[in-house]
Nucleic acid binder design. Structure first.
Lengths: 221, 221
DNA sequence: ACAAAAGTGTTTTTTTTACACCCATGT
DNA sequence: ACATGGGTGTAAAAAAAACACTTTTGT
């Protein structure tokens, strides 16, 4: 009935890992060192094995690449053009995950890979269809990060309101009024003061906040 | 390096086809006639072949099942639990598409399959993990149908405002005020009168509308 | 004392909600 | 003439937007 030889495909998992750093949302990319596409960048990736879910594969990929085994990924999309990789048919399932700078600096291990964090509005040349793939994920970021439980993954604790505001300004690509932003966040009742101040920067110290526990389902928009 | 025997998986495409009929958003399901799960219902499905994209496979699946070869599907999600089907490892990529009653009655062909349209709030027993899969798609419908270019696929031409309102009430699971609904739609400038009236029903005839051309990017919410 | 960035309230505008009567058709 | 469902406007409430000065720190 079926041609079973024709029904098996290789599946790769491509991760988008986002982080917020110095007022920019950034994505983790790795540098490709071999031809073709030498010098181009790629999304962290791995082949899906028989006994694992896509989500598990995604987490394991990050362990392999940066030694961090606790990042949770959700499925974003699938790219299935038969010729998206010229030499063989590879179905790509893409995922999105978030990490914060503190976790990263504490837990990230040495890696043999050449990596860099790129602001999402200025991506480098990327291998194969990775630019298109990353474009889709970045486009979906707007919706995904409107959920506070996702934004929290970028800001786990002790963040300032101006920092959070900059993240939303990045996501929505528009500047927000400081007073209105604070008012809105406070009305939504999703953060609380830690009692500490963010000392050491120039200018008046900002209060530090953390997200409250029960913010599931609450969104910025 | 890699165990290549371990890197090939079977991929099935599972389609969610939605339609609006008699005030309800409905999904097309087929009845399974063999054990196990005899009498349970399943999403129209097919195996992804080497030379086709998921989107192409989705369209072809509907041609096979109901003889309609023009339905466009977009990828919704992927389900990859290794044991989601006990007998073999099958990765499911799911899609969502829409069809309107007029197209369906004009173009649908005879089918050997036993099918039925179920209101999305009362689904029958379904095979394997299809209930969970359909639940995810139905959950995402709210967001997807807030885009008028998607809602248009359910209402291609000559619909009445009360009909459109009922669709939104279904999607958002809340009743809307008739005057406020009309005002909002008109403010958004997405529909125009056809000049015809919907005669033959009881009560005052409703004006008939069609969506305007340039509604891309406009959303109800 | 000066520069830098954060904190704070009020007014205006816009958007959303609430609400009731008349109209056109079929029976 | 009656039943059925569609069409219409206005006022109140809520949400969003506009806007400028003061405070706290580092240098």
């Amino acid at each position: 009935m079926y041609d079973y030889e024709n029904t098996l495909v290789k599946v790769e998992v491509l991760n988008h890992l986002f982080m917020f750093d110095k007022g920019k949302i950034k994505i983790l990319l790795f540098k490709n060192e071999v031809d073709p596409y030498k010098g181009y960048w790629f999304l962290p990736k791995g082949i899906l094995l028989q006994e694992e879910t896509i989500e598990e594969a995604a987490t394991e990929i990050m362990e392999k690449y940066i030694g961090l085994d606790s990042i949770h990924f959700t499925i974003n999309h699938a790219f299935s053009a038969p010729n998206r990789i010229p030499t063989e048919r590879v179905l790509a399932v893409t995922t999105i995950g978030f990490v914060d700078g503190v976790t990263l600096s504490l837990k990230q291990e040495e890696t043999k890979y050449d990596y860099s964090w790129f602001p999402i509005e200025s991506l480098p040349k990327m291998v194969y269809d990775h630019s298109k793939i990353a474009g889709k994920a970045i486009q979906d970021l707007k919706r995904i990060l409107s959920s506070f439980s996702n934004m929290r993954q970028l800001f786990p604790s002790d963040f300032t309101l101006p920092e959070l505001q900059r993240a939303y300004e990045e996501v929505y690509q528009e500047t927000l009024d400081r007073r209105n932003f604070r008012k809105k966040i406070m009305t939504l009742d999703v953060i609380e003061e830690t009692g500490e101040n963010n000392m050491g920067e120039s200018g008046r110290p900002a209060k530090l906040y953390r997200f409250k526990e029960n913010i599931e389902g609450k969104t910025f928009l």
